[in-house]
Simulated scan of single mutants.
Amino acid sequence: MAGHRIFGTSFASIHPLYVTKAEKKGRTRGEVDEVIGWLTGYDPEGIAEAIADERDLETFFADAPALNPHAALITGVICGHRVEEIEDPLMQQIRWMDKLVDELARGRAMDKILRQPA
């Protein structure tokens, strides 16, 4: 079964969209990279490398140093779907990343975005 076409989209093509979305709301590229790093384990150099080599999202997540163990605490609606109910693991990871950037752009406090168990 073929994956969704978003899986083949390069991380390099969506990262600037995330940054633009955040910057329009007064946030920074550093904050975007921080939330992506929290989710994936990539450091700033790893994110820059993923952009430079134009790896697709499937490879970006497959090569992620360490998916955050608290990522399952990310809940809510993104693109009309509840992220906690998405069955495909890769699609869920992509939507988690979308959700974190969306929360950042909406002005949510960083300590709330970078979830920790209660």
Rank of each mutant, 00 (worst) to 15 (best):
V19F: 03
V19H: 03
V19E: 02
V19Y: 02
V19Q: 05
T20Q: 11
K21Q: 12
K21M: 13
K21C: 05
K21H: 09
A22K: 06
A22H: 04
A22D: 04
E23W: 02
E23N: 04
K24H: 09
K24F: 09
K24D: 06
K25M: 14
K25D: 04
G26Q: 01
R27M: 03
T28Y: 11
T28H: 10
T28N: 05
R29D: 06
R29L: 12
G30A: 14
G30C: 04
G30E: 15
E31D: 05
V32N: 00
V32I: 10
D33P: 01
D33I: 09
E34K: 14
E34H: 07
E34R: 15
V35S: 02
V35D: 04
I36G: 06
G37K: 11
G37I: 12
W38L: 06
L39C: 09
L39Q: 07
L39T: 10
T40Q: 02
T40L: 04
T40A: 02
T40R: 08
T40M: 01
G41P: 01
G41C: 03
Y42N: 05
Y42L: 00
Y42R: 04
D43E: 14
D43T: 09
D43P: 01
P44L: 08
G46F: 00
G46I: 02
G46W: 06
I47V: 12
A48M: 05
A48K: 15
A48V: 00
A50W: 11
A50P: 12
A50Y: 11
A50Q: 09
I51F: 12
I51L: 14
A52Q: 13
A52P: 05
D53L: 06
D53E: 15
E54K: 15
E54C: 08
R55T: 06
R55S: 04
R55E: 12
R55V: 15
R55G: 01
D56I: 12
D56Q: 07
E58N: 10
E58K: 13
E58W: 08
E58H: 10
T59D: 10
T59H: 03
T59W: 03
F61A: 05
F61P: 13
F61S: 06
F61G: 08
A62V: 02
A62L: 09
D63T: 06
D63E: 14
D63F: 02
A64P: 12
A64W: 08
A64C: 00
A64L: 07
P65T: 01
P65W: 01
A66V: 01
A66L: 08
L67N: 00
L67H: 09
L67K: 06
N68A: 11
N68E: 08
N68S: 13
N68P: 13
N68V: 05
P69M: 05
H70F: 15
H70I: 00
A71V: 02
A71M: 07
A72V: 09
A72K: 10
L73F: 11
L73R: 08
L73M: 13
L73C: 05
I74L: 09
T75E: 12
T75W: 00
G76P: 11
V77S: 10
I78P: 00
C79N: 13
C79Q: 07
G80P: 06
G80M: 01
H81V: 13
H81K: 12
H81W: 11
H81D: 07
R82F: 13
R82K: 13
R82Y: 13
R82W: 06
V83G: 07
E84K: 01
E84D: 15
E84N: 11
E84P: 00
E85T: 14
I86G: 01
I86Y: 04
